[in-house]
Design a protein around this nucleic acid. Structure first.
Length: 284
DNA sequence: CTTGGGACCTGTGAGC
DNA sequence: TGCTCACAGGTCCCAA
């Protein structure tokens, strides 16, 4: 579910709620998500104060004043939801505090809670020393942030050069660039007019520049819209993101292409097991 | 080394 | 209504 824009939206929603506040209690309702939780996770969380909330790729990084960072990944269906103190009381009264798939509930010093809910349990949580968090095995091999300065045309040319895989698959490779997922790769390729089937190594230098700009613009627009709400994704405050209304190709098989001068029809194909949506007419 | 496919899970919607 | 099947925003792991 959540790609970079959704995780960034969650981070921004959580920031004012968590930063500076102490974690009073942590209820951990199962031993694992995708992997077992770290040893003594509850004890290592309770009593700490959040210093900073950062994001790396699709990982949320909660820096604690204990010197450790809580690493959170939302997988496909993970959500982090905030409930203010009065809502928590209401939930108590309705005896529905433990909603289905609420795996971890943090209670902050002001009574608000932050709940990790994840039906499919592809999400993950771990703790690592803040000073070395970039060396954590989940983060160590990630490529540059697509919105950062290290992701520039020369870099992209360099890593795509000679690649025999389709550009769609290349952009999903988190070692090449970190944070893109199925939706935003489809959208960025449509914006740049590049076919997802085209081999990565066979894109001209000028078009690589266009692709880079399309990736940035797509992500910027999606963050500005609060991400995309499909099925179950919500912002941390419970609001729905609305970028799904701006999809030009994703999940639009059979629809007419949105490009003004194009009369193509959006197609769906499967590439390395994932749906790809594109316009065969204007994406070359 | 690269690449593709299966695996991990639950939920939902379409079609019968 | 109820069953079955395909598919869903990710990514690790392994075989080729």
């Amino acid at each position: 579910m959540p790609e970079l824009p959704e995780v960034e939206t969650v981070r921004r929603g959580l920031e004012p709620v968590m930063v500076g506040r102490r974690i009073e209690a942590a209820s951990i309702n199962r031993p694992d998500l995708r992997w077992p939780f770290p040893d003594n996770m509850r004890e290592r969380l309770v009593g700490t104060r959040t210093r900073r909330l950062a994001r790396r790729s699709k990982y949320l990084l909660v820096d604690l004043d204990s010197g450790e960072t809580l690493i959170v990944h939302l997988g496909m269906s993970g959500r982090l939801l905030i409930r203010a103190r009065d809502e928590v009381a209401k939930f108590h009264n309705a005896q529905t505090l433990a909603a289905k798939h609420d795996h971890v509930v943090l209670t902050l010093e002001d009574g608000a809670t932050v709940t990790f809910n994840d039906p499919r349990r592809f999400g993950a949580m771990d703790l690592a020393p803040t000073a070395a968090v970039e060396d954590h095995h989940l983060l160590a091999r990630l490529g540059p942030e697509p919105l950062g300065n290290a992701f520039h045309a020369d870099y992209l040319k360099g890593v795509l050069n000679g690649k025999k895989t389709p550009i769609k698959s290349a952009l999903l490779d988190q070692r090449l660039v970190a944070g893109l997922g199925n939706i935003y790769v489809c959208e960025a390729l449509w914006r740049s007019g590049i076919s997802p089937l085209r081999l990565a190594g066979r894109i001209g230098g000028e078009r690589i520049g266009a692709l880079l700009r399309s990736i940035r613009e797509t992500l910027d627009d999606a963050i500005a819209a609060g991400g995309s709400s499909l099925r179950d994704y919500r912002q941390a405050d419970g609001e729905l993101g609305y970028f799904q209304h701006s999809f030009r190709v994703y999940d639009r098989e059979g629809d007419p292409c949105c490009r003004a001068e194009c009369d193509g029809v959006i197609r769906r194909v499967v590439q390395s097991g994932r749906s790809t949506f594109y316009c065969p007419r204007c994406q070359r």
